[in-house]
Design a protein around this nucleic acid. Sequence first.
DNA 1: CAGACACGTTTGTCCTGGACAAATCAAACT
DNA 2: AGTTTGATTTGTCCAGGACAAACGTGTCTG
Lengths: 307, 307
Amino acid sequence: MNAPNLSETAFSIAAVERDTGLAKDTLRVWERRYGFPSPTRDANGERLYPADQVEKLRMIRRLLDHGRRPARVVGASIEELSAMLDACLCPEGGAPAGRDDGLLQLVRLHRSVELAAALRQALMKQGLQRFVAETVAPLAAAVGEAWMRGEVDVPEEHLFTEQVQNVLRSAIGAHAASAGRPRVLLTTFPEEEHVLGLLMAEAMLVPEGASCLSLGTRTPLADIRSAAVGGGFDIVGLSFSIAYPARQAIEGLLELRSLLPEGIELWAGGAAVRDKQKRLPGIRVVGDLEDTMAALQEWRARNGAEG
Amino acid sequence: MNAPNLSETAFSIAAVERDTGLAKDTLRVWERRYGFPSPTRDANGERLYPADQVEKLRMIRRLLDHGRRPARVVGASIEELSAMLDACLCPEGGAPAGRDDGLLQLVRLHRSVELAAALRQALMKQGLQRFVAETVAPLAAAVGEAWMRGEVDVPEEHLFTEQVQNVLRSAIGAHAASAGRPRVLLTTFPEEEHVLGLLMAEAMLVPEGASCLSLGTRTPLADIRSAAVGGGFDIVGLSFSIAYPARQAIEGLLELRSLLPEGIELWAGGAAVRDKQKRLPGIRVVGDLEDTMAALQEWRARNGAEG
DNA sequence: CAGACACGTTTGTCCTGGACAAATCAAACT
DNA sequence: AGTTTGATTTGTCCAGGACAAACGTGTCTG
């Protein structure tokens, strides 16, 4: 009695917007067009979404992030959605997690203390760069896949991000602040809030003697420009998660490119820009973490003689 | 020519919502009622907000966060708004920044390397808890004030947050993971993305032997509940920045209180809930960082004998 | 056969103008 | 001084229409 039955609680349209990330307008227009969701109404005629419909909406959201289109997923049954989520992932490799299954299990089971210990141990054993490339990146991919499947939820994803952040920030901070070149400014666009990509990039570059400054996530374009120009940076690095719309990434990158002086390079990495190099003239698309190192070598080859 | 004149750029209603935190509905209803903002229209009849109006909206937003009411601020001139902002801040202490002026200057001037060094030095000198209470918290307040006055902008605020985060996460990570009581789960509500409050709380509690787990920001209510229950936590701690609407904080806290079993305490801290204790029965409002320690002592007095 | 172009469809976001409940303020009252 | 009552302010919700950008598909070309 103290804990209300979750199956009976219902959510306002504002609550659903924040829990699913679907705009109020979108929720209303789906109802009009597809007949789903079909919320009840309170005494004042306002929508009340039952918990199971909210859950279904969250599954739909995940499928949309993977490129499905609404007409094919809004209105499908729970079972069909579940099947689609499986189909989204299976073809891309039978056992994608591999040796990191242990860590993924720790995330799943909320074993935060053990997770932190295991991460630190791996860091000690591998060194920062290999730790990022061989442990953190695959684990992040595995968590992302499990998230897509609905096997991990918000708290697990947060737990994972927090623990990795703790370890990486400590490790990066342990390096003496370098005055070396290139000077790299790292951040994301205003709609992107995933920070791990930035930290992984920083962790790869700092041991090489580059001088990195991360502004964290969600920096407006104009502010990226002024920070880069005012701070005397050689390179601006942007990170994009898989949820970031590719179209928006390209548009934003081209605009930023036109804002920046030619002397400052623009690098972009992450799932949203992979394989988009040809549509991004004047921008260095960094395919993966190893490619980051290659890009750094190239920069030094270009600028070493003159700089 | 290469850099478009900022005074000529204009923003869509969605961009203004993102930059000011004012909902689209609110922007439209203000225009209808107060005649401000008064955006132009594009070829398609959609609102286009000039940059100076967006700037004014940001000032208005700051005043609303400080308790002013819309009728008195929407429609005032820039000069009047500026005067109100000064009046908001001056009475609360002539020289609020004091000894941290030096650090604030480093933030203002983007001296990231010096800032990081100064923070680490202060940490070494003061120890973690005093560092948080005497250096980080006043500096955060000073940055917040400067933000309110418009003297610092997005990049400075990000720079500050990142550097403090680096130092605090390193320091917290340096403590051996404790198995002690109480076990505290720290996070924020979905609309709140400021993380420093959580880190400061964690930095105060961990040296006392409490066992803290931070889930980071933006955790849905239902997930807070399941993480708290499943993880065997004694206390759930929520952090609210000054920008968080007090009404929404109270509503959310009461709802979460009803979701949590009685055995788990609920603590709330931050500007948005200060002095709201009487409206929050069953919830411990933590006034400031010292009060966090007091609350911890109280918990141990209550639970030490039996637990 | 890869890639560029044109065309119909899908889809998210914006619009107007009305409505109302919750929050707040002001005044009268124990 | 604190509480109750009534008037006003204010944010959010609703309906239903509109449209441009994104997308899928088929066609043509080198």
